[in-house]
Write a protein that binds this DNA or RNA. Structure first.
Lengths: 346, 346
DNA sequence: CTGAAAGCGCTTACAG
DNA sequence: CTGAAAGCGCTTACAG
C-alpha cells in the first residue's frame, strides 16, 4: 500500500494552494518520504536499484503532484539539451513544411524535440536565429537553405553540431550534408529537354546565395550541352516570384519556351501567368518543376518535376544527430535519391 | 584599450584546445578580469551600472570566446523559460503551417521561441507531447485542435498557461481562446446556400472531437433552417479523405449537390473526385470550403470559402502570452473576423 | 561601479 | 537498496 511518510500539514497546504509553480523533485521526494536521488533514479529509469514499494510511493506522489521532471534542470546537469533547432528559409513552403514534419517526427523517436525557426530568406534574421539556437544549447542545428554569413562560419568553426540540408555548406565549412545531388538532378532535366527536342531553353532558378540553386542550374546547363543559349532568371522560391517572371517571359509569345523552374512554387507561378494569357501547357509552353511537393498530386497533377523525397530527410538527419561522433566522414554525407516525374507539362 | 588581466597560460590552452564544450560565463569573467556578476549584467542589458572600460573588456572577451549566454542556466535561475510549445493536429496542412509561421514570427518579437509539435490527429501522441511541453517548462502551450483527454484536463486544472486556438476548450476547462466564431461562419454559409437557391445539401464536416467542426456544422444547419434534410459525413481534414467522401457522394450523379466542406483540403479532394467523373463545378456540383488557405489564390482560385485570417493569430496569441496575468477574463477570448469569399465554385 | 554568495532543479559517483 | 553532497550556468539582492 501507498503510505505517506513525513507529511506535515504545511506540505499539504503547499500542495493544495500552490498551483502557481510546478512541483520539483524535492516536492516528490518529501511527499514520498525518500531522497531526491531516489526520485531521480525512478524518472531516469534506473528502477532496478529501487525497491518495488519505493517505486510505488514515488509513482503515486508524482501523480498526485502532477510532477514532470524539468528538462531545464536535467539539461543543465547533463550539459546537453534535447532540443534540435531547424532553421528554414520559408516555413510556409509546403516542401519545407514536409521536411520539417519529417524531422520532427524522426527526432521524437529519439526523445528529442524540434524548434522550427523561420529565417524568411533573410541573412540578418538567420544570424539572429543562429544566436538563439546557440543560446538554447541546441543538440544540433539543422540548416535548410543556409546563407553564407560570417556568423555561420564562426559557429561552424567552433562547433560540430551543424547539419546542412539540401544545400551544401559553403566552401571552407566542414559539416554533414543531407540532400540530393542537385547537379545530377539538374543535368537529368537538361538531358530530358534535349531528348524531347525542346528548344528555347529558360531557367528560372533560385537565389544564387544558395548552393543548391546554382548546382541545379549548372547541372541543367551541362545536361543541355554547352552550345545552347539559355535565358536565365534568378528568382525567389515563391509562386509570386514565379508569376512575375512568367509574365515577363510570356510577354514574348512568339516562341515555345521550355522552362526549368528552381522549384514547384516557381512553376505554379509561371503556370498561372500562362493561364492568364491563354497559353497552353505543354503545347505552347513546357514547364518543369523541382521538389514534387505533396500539393502536386492534388492541385497540380500536370506538373513534370524532380521528386525530392521529403520524408526521407527526417530519419537521415535524426540518425546523423544520434550517431556516435566522428564516424567515418563519408557517412556524414547522406545523398538521397531523386526521381524524374514526367507528367503532362513537359 | 582592451586588456587581459589574470590570464594564465592554462587559460589560453583551454581556449585553444577546448572546442568541445561551449564557453560559460565564468570563462568570460576570467578572460575579461571581472566577476561573473558583471558579465551577467552586461548580457542582461544592465550596462548603466558598468564602466565603459569594463563593458569593452567583456564584449571583447565574449567575442573571442564565441560566448552566448545559456538559456538553460538563465531559465533555471529565473524559473521561466522562453519557449512556447505549439501543438498542431497536422503540421503539413497549409493553413496550420501559416498559423504556426505567424505565431513563430510574433513570438520572436517578444524574445520567445516556438517549438512546433505535431500531434498527428492522435490523442496519445498529443498527451505525450503535452508531457514534453511540461518537461520543457514551456512559457505557454498553444493548442490548435486540442483533443479532450484526461491529461489535458489535468494540466488545464493545474496551470494557466494553456491557450486554445480555433477550437474552444472542452466544457469545464477555463482557458483563453483565439479564433473565429465557427458557428457564425457556418451559419453564413448555410444562409448563402439558401439565398442562392441551392438544394440537396451536404456537409462533409471535420472530426467531431474538435469543437470547431461541430460548431461549423451546427451553424450551417441553423443557417439552412431546420426543415432541410442534410447529408452529413464526418471526415478527417485532408484531401485524401475529402476525395474518398467525394467519390462516395458522387456515385449518385442524379442530383446537383451543394457541399459544405469542413476545410479547404476536404474541398480539394471533393473537387478532384468531381473532375475524375467529369462533373462540372458549379454547374453540376456546388462546393464551399473553409480557411481560405494561401494555396487557393494560386492553385484553386475557383474555390468559394470562408477566409480565416491565419496571419492574425500570431499577434493575438503573442499578446495574450505576454499580457499581465489575470486581466479581464473577456480580454482573454480573442474572436477574429472571418470573411465569406465567394468565387466560382458556389 | 563591482564582487561574493546563494540558489534555481536536476543527476551521479561515492559511501554505506 | 538508499542518501548526502557536489555542481551544471546563470541572476540578483546585498554589501561595499
Amino acid at each position: 500500500m501507498w503510505r505517506l511518510r513525513n507529511w506535515p500539514r504545511a506540505e499539504i497546504d503547499r500542495i493544495e494552494l500552490c498551483m502557481s509553480k510546478p512541483p520539483t523533485i524535492r516536492d516528490v521526494a518529501r511527499l514520498s518520504g525518500v531522497s531526491t536521488a531516489t526520485v531521480s533514479r525512478y524518472f531516469t529509469g534506473k528502477t532496478d536499484a529501487i525497491s518495488p514499494e519505493t517505486i510505488e510511493n514515488v509513482r503515486n506522489a508524482a501523480k498526485v503532484l502532477g510532477y514532470t521532471p524539468s528538462e531545464i534542470g536535467r539539461s543543465l546537469r547533463l550539459a546537453r539539451s534535447r532540443v534540435v533547432v531547424m532553421l528554414v528559409p520559408d516555413a510556409t513552403n509546403p516542401f519545407t513544411a514536409d521536411v520539417a514534419a519529417s524531422v520532427e517526427q524522426a527526432l521524437k523517436e529519439y526523445g528529442l524535440s524540434m524548434v522550427l525557426a523561420n529565417a524568411s530568406e533573410n541573412a540578418e534574421q538567420q544570424d539572429r536565429l543562429l544566436a538563439d539556437a546557440q543560446g538554447l544549447r541546441a543538440r544540433a542545428i539543422v540548416l535548410q537553405g543556409a546563407i553564407d554569413t560570417p556568423r555561420l562560419r564562426d559557429m561552424a568553426s567552433r562547433q560540430d553540431n551543424l547539419i546542412f540540408v539540401n544545400r551544401r555548406p559553403a566552401p571552407g565549412i566542414v559539416a554533414p550534408y543531407v540532400g540530393i545531388d542537385n547537379f545530377a538532378a539538374g543535368f537529368a532535366v537538361g538531358k530530358y529537354f534535349v531528348d524531347r527536342g525542346y528548344e528555347n531553353y529558360v531557367a528560372i532558378h533560385g537565389p544564387r546565395h544558395y548552393s543548391g540553386s546554382t548546382e541545379r542550374l549548372d547541372g541543367f546547363l551541362a545536361g543541355l550541352g554547352e552550345m545552347r543559349p539559355v535565358l536565365q532568371f534568378e528568382s525567389p522560391y515563391t509562386m509570386e516570384a514565379g508569376y512575375r517572371q512568367g509574365q515577363l517571359l510570356l510577354a514574348d509569345r512568339s516562341r515555345r519556351y521550355a522552362v526549368f523552374c528552381g522549384n514547384d512554387m516557381i512553376a505554379y507561378g509561371v503556370y498561372r501567368a500562362a493561364l492568364e494569357k491563354d497559353i497552353r501547357v505543354p503545347e505552347d509552353l513546357v514547364i518543369f518543376g523541382f521538389d514534387d511537393n505533396r500539393l502536386n498530386e492534388w492541385l497540380a497533377p500536370w506538373l513534370s518535376t524532380v521528386k525530392v523525397p521529403a520524408f526521407e530527410f527526417g530519419p537521415a538527419i535524426a540518425k546523423l544527430i544520434n550517431a556516435p561522433i566522428a564516424t567515418n566522414d563519408q557517412d556524414r554525407n547522406v545523398i538521397l535519391p531523386f526521381t524524374m516525374m514526367t507528367r503532362t507539362s513537359a
